[in-house]
């Protein structure tokens, strides 16, 4: 079958990635169809669905999950899974907010010093997340513990650390400059949207062009073979989980800024479910392999749309769970290899 007598066609086809033809086109593009269908349906049924406000809101709300899903895509591409993402969001937000609030600068007008202080606080948050990612990656690759167990434990630990940092009550950031960060607009676009576009572009570049992503994919496809061609599995695995954790940290910090408060017990709770669903809808295989960043972007928007639609049509939240389940199953079914 594969080895028929056809003479080898040595010249590269222009389309290297999708060399399989017609069927795969439909499959590869089923996501936009879905997406369109949802938009069309909603512009009919949902009042003021197509307004700028709605778009603005949807995108801002989609922001944290989108970032987490991007990181999750790489993790899943390596054959792993990360359920500690929500807890990492919480711990980085808690660290950032706690440090930021330490200084009297927090409520002063914008100044160089303030910006420096804010950057310093955010860096500490990112660092905390990085430590979590490091822990995930190290435990998984050095001690060969299943990713789901490692990240479950890290989820447990990270969330309780976040709660210990903040104490019983949520930390309010109302009236601080930090809240302004969440409302910042540059040339009319909310900062969340800008970061999101930047993150998507960066991840697309990473996934398509970098040696790192190729190695991640190789580990996901065939771990033994990856070891035997000399890939440093430890370093790549740690890299993947740290990358994911840093994206989570950005999501966590910005989410704290948007809401004006940090509730360590709730921030990022269950976001791993939506993120994993987004990745699954996007077509990245759970067994590892090619990271489909664009697919994830569609998946994330789709999952978020479900929430938005349910909210705007005043349907109770419970139905959104069912709707998500249906979307997830249909999307994955539509793209599977037949």
């Amino acid at each position: 079958m594969p080895d028929s007598d056809t003479p080898a066609k040595l010249l590269a086809s222009a389309n290297m990635q999708h060399a399989t033809g017609g069927m795969s086109f439909v499959k590869a593009h089923s996501m936009p169809f879905f997406f369109l269908a949802l938009i069309v349906l909603n512009s009919i049924f949902t009042p003021s669905f197509l307004s700028i406000d709605t778009l603005d809101n949807t995108l801002r709300q989609a922001f944290p999950m989108m970032l987490v899903a991007l990181g999750m895509t790489m993790v899943i591409s390596s054959g792993g899974i990360d359920i500690s993402v929500g807890a990492i969001m919480a711990v980085s937000a808690a660290v950032t907010a706690r440090i930021f609030a330490l200084s009297v600068l927090a409520t002063t007008p914008v100044s160089v010093l303030l910006i420096l202080w804010m950057a310093c606080a955010i860096c500490c948050g990112l660092l905390a997340a990085g430590v979590c990612g490091l822990l995930n990656g190290m435990l998984i690759s050095k001690f060969k513990i299943q990713p789901i167990i490692v990240t479950l434990i890290v989820m447990f630990v990270a969330r309780s650390v976040a709660q210990m940092i903040l104490g019983e009550l949520p930390l309010s950031l109302m009236g601080t400059r930090f809240e302004d960060l969440g409302r910042l607009r540059i040339l009319g676009a909310p900062i969340q949207v800008l970061i999101m576009i930047g993150a998507v572009a960066a991840m697309l570049f990473i996934a398509k062009k970098t040696v790192f992503a190729r190695r991640v994919e190789a580990i996901g496809e065939n771990r033994r073979a990856a070891r035997l061609v000399g890939i440093n599995i430890f370093r790549v695995t740690v890299g993947v989980y740290v990358l994911c954790a840093v994206l989570c940290a950005i999501a966590g910090v910005m989410e704290a800024a948007r809401g004006g408060r940090v509730d360590a017990g709730r921030l990022g709770m269950f976001i791993e479910l939506d993120a994993i669903a987004a990745v699954a809808i996007g077509g990245t295989a759970f067994s590892g392999g090619r990271a489909r960043i664009l697919g994830t972007v569609f998946g994330a928007v789709l999952v978020q749309l479900v929430t938005v639609i349910v909210n705007m049509n005043d349907i109770s939240y419970h139905y959104s769970l069912i709707l998500k389940a249906v979307v997830l199953v249909t999307a994955v079914w539509a793209q599977k290899d037949k």
Binding site: Q17, E221, N222, R224, A225, G289
Partner: peptide, 10 residues
């Protein structure tokens, strides 16, 4: 199969 190829890669 187990130690050589990456089946879904080009």
């Amino acid at each position: 199969k187990a130690e050589g190829i990456f089946p879904n890669m080009t």
